[in-house]
Amino acid sequence: MKLLSVLPALGIIALIVVAGCAGTGNFSGKPATPSQTTVTAATPASTTILTTAIPTATPEPYPHALALKQNFSFGTGKVASEAIVYRYWINDTYQWLGDKENHFYTSPDQPMPGYKYLFVFVQMTNNGDTRVWFPPSSNIVVHYNGMTYTQDPSHFLPDKGERGKETPVLIKEIQYFQKLNGDEYVEDFGFSHGTRPDFLYPGKSNSMDGYIIYVVPASLTPEQTYVEIPFNGQDTGVWKLA
C-alpha cells in the first residue's frame, strides 16, 4: 500500500524534470550555445546634408590703386611732375550756362533712365623746370564693373563768348567748388580761364586743375570705381574713388 502511493508521486516529479529540460532547449546537459542572429540596422531611403556655402571674394581689379587725394609722380628730372584725383561729384543732371545766350541749360535735355553723371576732379603739377606734355581729358578713363567710360562728348566745352573772349563753362551746382590749391573756382580739365594750353608749365600756379564729366550707370558706386590716367607712355596712375 505504501509502495503504490509513492509511485504516482515519483511520476509527477519526473514530469516536472522533463518539462524543465524542455524549457531549456538542451537535453545533453551542456551549456546552451547562443544562436547566431544577424541584425541589420535600418538605413534611411535618402539623406539630406546641409552645408553652408562660403562666397568667393571678388578680386580687386586694381589692387595697387591709389586712394583719393593721393599723389602720383610721373616724369623725372627737369620734367618731374605729379598728378592727383582729389574729388568726385555724382548727380542725375547738371545745369550749365551758355555764355552766348546767358542762359542755363539742363543736361540731359531728355530723361536718361538707368544713367547718371560722374564728375572727376584732377590736378597735375609740373615740379621741374621744363614744360611737359599732359594727357588730354579724353585719355582719362573711368572703370566700373568691368566696363570703361570716357569723357562725355556731348558736354559743351569752353568757346569764344559773344565778345570774342574765351570764358570757362559755368556749372551751376558746382560753380563755387575751388581748385585743389584753393585759389580759383574749378573749370573743365585741360582749360585755364577758358583757354586750352598745349603744355603743363613749371610751378604750382600753372597747375592744370579741373573736372571731367562721364555718363555712367545709375548703379555706379565710388567704392567700385577707378580712374586711370596714362601719362608719358611709361607711367600710368590709377585711383579708387572711395
Rank of each mutant, 00 (worst) to 15 (best):
L157S: 00
P55G: 04
G161H: 07
V39T: 12
D129M: 01
T51C: 05
Y176P: 08
V18Q: 03
A83K: 08
T43Q: 07
S138I: 09
M147F: 15
T52P: 07
V216W: 09
Q110S: 04
Y115S: 09
A32K: 15
Y115F: 14
P168L: 07
L3M: 15
F72E: 14
L241F: 07
V18G: 03
H143I: 06
I212Q: 05
Q151N: 04
Y86P: 08
H103F: 13
H155W: 11
Y117R: 00
Q95I: 00
S107H: 12
K2E: 14
T43F: 03
A65F: 08
Q95D: 07
N91W: 07
I213C: 00
T106Q: 02
G114N: 06
N139I: 05
D159K: 09
K100M: 02
T125R: 02
L3E: 15
K204S: 05
F27L: 12
K100W: 10
Q70W: 11
T24R: 13
V85G: 01
K165W: 08
P55H: 01
C21V: 13
T125W: 03
F177V: 13
C21L: 13
H64D: 14
Q224T: 14
Q123E: 15
V39R: 07
Y86F: 15
G210P: 14
F231K: 06
P202C: 02
S205P: 06
G210L: 13
G98F: 13
T33V: 13
Y105Q: 01
V238R: 06
K179S: 06
F104H: 00
K116V: 02
Y201I: 02
N126G: 01
T148S: 04
L50F: 13
S107M: 12
W96Q: 00
V169G: 04
D129C: 00
I16R: 08
L4W: 15
D92Y: 10
T24M: 12
Y86H: 09
H143Y: 15
I174P: 08
S154E: 09
F72R: 09
T52Y: 11
D198N: 09
I140W: 04
F199N: 00
G20E: 09
K69F: 11
M124F: 11
G194Q: 05
P61M: 05
D235V: 00
E223V: 02
G233Y: 06
M112Y: 12
A19F: 14
